Amino acid sequence: MTTFKLIINGKTLKGEITIEAVDAAEKEKIFKQYANDNGIDGEWTYDDATKTFTVTE
């Protein structure tokens, strides 16, 4: 398992979430669903070196 981080830079929601997953593709799906469930629609980036997804509205 690898630890992945999501950084949220939303208009109404900001924060960080850290979760373990098998791979980045699995985690991306979970993070995007979390963002969608919380009304966050923005630009996504991924840094493989730090295993960090960022979504910015």
Rank of each mutant, 00 (worst) to 15 (best):
T50A: 03
A25H: 08
E43M: 09
T56K: 05
V55K: 04
E28R: 05
Q33N: 05
I19H: 02
E43C: 14
F53E: 01
E43S: 07
F31Y: 03
T18A: 06
M1P: 09
M1E: 06
T18P: 03
E20Y: 14
A25V: 09
D48C: 05
Y46G: 00
I40C: 11
T52Y: 01
F53N: 02
I8C: 15
K51I: 09
A35R: 04
G10Q: 03
I17A: 01
E16I: 14
N36Q: 14
K29L: 11
N9Q: 10
A35I: 13
F31E: 00
W44P: 00
Y34W: 15
K14Y: 13
A21F: 14
T54P: 00
Y34T: 01
A25Q: 09
K5T: 13
K32V: 09
G39M: 05
N9D: 05
A25Y: 08
N36F: 13
K11H: 10
E20A: 11
G39C: 10
T50H: 03
L13T: 07
Y46K: 01
G39L: 07
M1K: 13
A35S: 03
I8Q: 00
E57K: 04
T52G: 01
E28Y: 14
A49S: 07
T54Y: 12
G15E: 11
I8H: 02
L13G: 10
G42D: 01
F53L: 06
K29I: 10
T50M: 03
I8G: 00
D48H: 05
I19V: 06
T2A: 06
N9G: 03
I8A: 00
L6I: 15
I19K: 00
V55H: 02
G39A: 08
A21L: 14
T52Q: 03
K5A: 03
F53G: 01
E26Q: 08
T56L: 07
D37P: 02
T52V: 03
E26G: 12
V22D: 10
W44Y: 03
G15L: 15
K29Y: 11
V55T: 02
I40F: 11
K11R: 11
A25C: 11
E16D: 04
K51M: 07
I19S: 07
N38V: 12
A49V: 09
G42R: 03
E20H: 12
I17R: 03
A49H: 08
L13H: 10
W44N: 01
K11L: 12
